[in-house]
């Protein structure tokens, strides 16, 4: 299996005045057997990063190593990576079986061997009954599985996945998340997974790299990233609803910005943060309370539904434990120790 190393990788599209930097000096080591999530908003460069690992794009500068070997100039087919695309990229005119077999056929595997491998992969993904169908006759979830089967049949060292769940409906997405984690455990190989969905990142990754504007903001386990976001960007990108950022100076020094997650805000008459309730969202298991206050203060708090819930327009005081407060540099957004 394989370790993937990115060393000072940059990617610039265009030239001269039109040049845009998609990836800016990214260094990252993805260990063997890891399920690494590249998480960020659209246009942050995460897909470009993945495509460079695949060999579909060349880095403008920096080195890309797989198992210690520099592969910058190695053709995609020799990198021993498989990729699952957001659109699945199945061959519409081939049956499911032929789709799954195709990578083996290209490698000159014998017909009998191909069929055996395809059936095995189909079984792993529950596609056995659909081998004779064409992709057009399958549901979105089934097509997604065919794309996965086509990737695993090759037994690549590294799996690359580019938002593979984003075309599925919410229910199916949840089920497939669990299956992917299961698949990762069974295959025991390296996964690199691109998504903009922080729920996918939290639930599936062994580690998450949060990317913004072509740069890595933070790398860590999902819990680390959640508990100790390295910047205000990470703090707001991970967690729904996002972390509240108080106007600088409201608590503490004026060059420090305090952040507090909605679940850590408590309604408390002796609290130091004041706001008036603007809206209540009843979600059943909890209530989201949206409040506004002086100095451009916008707050979201999670409240248990059966506690006494204030009404819209009420002025409410909030408090939070010291240990749940996050401190950021007000100018740079970087986490303070």
């Amino acid at each position: 299996m394989a370790q993937v190393q990115l060393e000072h990788i940059s990617k610039v599209f265009g030239e001269g005045a039109d040049a845009t930097t998609a990836v800016d000096d990214v260094s990252l080591t993805i260990d063997d057997h890891e399920f690494m999530i590249l998480l960020g908003p659209s246009g942050c460069g995460k897909s470009t990063l993945l495509r460079m690992v695949a060999g579909l794009e060349d880095p403008t500068s920096g080195d890309l190593l797989i198992d210690g070997l520099r592969v910058n100039d190695v053709e995609p087919k020799l990198r021993d990576v498989a990729m699952v695309f957001q659109s699945y990229a199945l061959y519409p005119h081939k049956t499911v079986q032929r789709n799954i077999e195709f990578p083996l056929k290209v490698r000159g595997v014998s017909k009998a061997e191909r069929a055996k491998e395809a059936e095995r992969a189909a079984e792993v993904l529950g596609l056995t009954d659909y081998l004779r169908r064409k992709p057009g006759q399958l549901s979105g979830g089934q097509r997604q599985r065919v794309a996965l089967a086509r990737a695993i049949v090759r037994r690549p060292a590294v799996f690359l996945m580019d938002e593979p769940l984003s075309n599925l409906d919410a229910k199916l997405r949840g089920d497939t998340r669990a299956e992917l984690v299961d698949l990762h455990r069974r295959l025991n190989s390296t996964f690199i997974y691109v998504t903009h969905d922080q729920v996918e990142a939290m639930t599936m990754g062994t580690r998450v790299a949060v990317i913004n504007k072509g740069r890595i903001e933070q790398v860590g386990s999902p819990q680390e990233v959640y508990d100790a976001p390295a910047s205000t960007f990470v703090a707001q990108f991970i967690g729904t609803p996002p972390m509240n950022l108080l106007p600088p100076g409201m608590i503490g020094a004026s060059d420090v910005q305090i952040g507090v997650r909605p679940e850590h805000l408590r309604v408390d008459p002796s609290g130091t943060i004041t706001g008036s309730v603007r809206q209540l969202e009843h979600l059943g298991h909890e209530v989201l309370l949206l409040a506004e206050g002086d100095g451009g203060l916008h707050l979201t708090a999670r409240i248990a539904p059966h506690d006494q819930v204030p009404g819209v327009g009420d002025v409410v005081r909030f408090t939070a434990d010291e240990r749940f407060l996050h401190r950021f540099d007000a100018a740079t957004g970087v986490r303070l120790p």
Partner: peptide, 11 residues
């Protein structure tokens, strides 16, 4: 993506 997927497979 069809061409890209194929090129990863060595087509």
């Amino acid at each position: 993506e069809l061409r890209e997927a194929a090129s990863l497979d060595g087509v």
